[in-house]
């Protein structure tokens, strides 16, 4: 792990966040299906080297804050065939998130 200071942390547990609706080419760890969706920060996972840079042989610095975000299934999928309370969690790097 590097000692390089990561970017400033912008979100806390409980914050409502929206995933960027953006489709840049290249290696991305934000699945297509979650882009543009709104959820709530469930936990802060730590700061990690940026996989979008590591994937091309760069060092991934500065590290990026990673959050676990919880979404209602009915907010993700039109016509989700399950009860209202079902949820989906996934990890989103801070640079993909904006305040909702």
């Amino acid at each position: 792990m590097s000692a390089e200071t990561p970017e400033e942390r912008r979100f806390e547990v409980g914050d409502e966040v929206r995933v960027a609706l953006s489709h840049p080419p290249g290696h991305r760890r934000t699945p297509f299906y979650i882009r543009g969706k709104t959820g709530v920060v469930e936990r802060y996972c730590g700061a990690f080297r940026n996989p979008e840079e590591l994937a091309y042989g760069f060092d991934g610095e500065p590290r990026r804050h990673l959050y676990r975000v919880r979404f209602r299934q009915h907010d993700i999928w039109d016509g989700y065939d399950g009860p209202e309370q079902d949820t989906l969690d996934l990890e989103i790097y801070q640079h993909w998130l904006e305040r909702a």
Binding site: G26, H27, P51, L54, A55, Y56, G57, G60
Partner: peptide, 11 residues
């Protein structure tokens, strides 16, 4: 190599 490079090569 990194696991990220491996994933990118797969994709």
């Amino acid at each position: 190599m990194t696991v990220d490079e491996m994933r990118r090569a797969l994709e």
